[in-house]
């Protein structure tokens, strides 16, 4: 279920970053580095996106010995639809604040 309220600039940034390679799995630390956001901001966003069915999560299957499996993330169908809407709003300038996409 998507929410009617407009996502925050940071949430928009996370969704658009995940939409850049929608079929690929992403890591939490990779998103933090990519968006130059702190873990304290990225993880609550990922939790909310997953709660709303916009984000699919999985555990890494072939983790090397001695290292715990990492958590993986990618957008679901509704998540991709939201990303498309946000991207369109960004290009037409309807987003009030431009999402921060450092390194994107």
């Amino acid at each position: 279920m998507t929410r009617a309220r407009r996502p925050s600039a940071q949430t928009t940034a996370v969704v658009l970053a995940l939409a850049q390679a929608p079929a690929a799995w992403h890591y939490g630390y990779q998103l933090c580095q990519h968006l130059d956001l702190k873990a304290g901001s990225v993880y609550p966003i990922l939790m909310r996106l997953a709660d709303r069915g916009l984000l699919e999560t999985a555990w890494e299957r072939d983790a090397p010995d001695g290292r715990p499996p990492r958590h993986l993330y990618r957008l679901t169908g509704p998540g991709r639809a939201l990303a498309a809407t946000l991207a369109a709003e960004a290009t037409t300038g309807t987003v009030r604040r431009r999402p921060r996409l450092a390194g994107a």
Binding site: Y27, G28, Y29, Y43, P68, P69, R70, H71
Partner: peptide, 16 residues
């Protein structure tokens, strides 16, 4: 109901 996220962040820290 958020336990997995703790494991996720702990596992991710091993990459840093």
């Amino acid at each position: 109901d958020r336990r997995d996220w703790g494991t996720a962040m702990t596992a991710e820290l091993t990459q840093v």
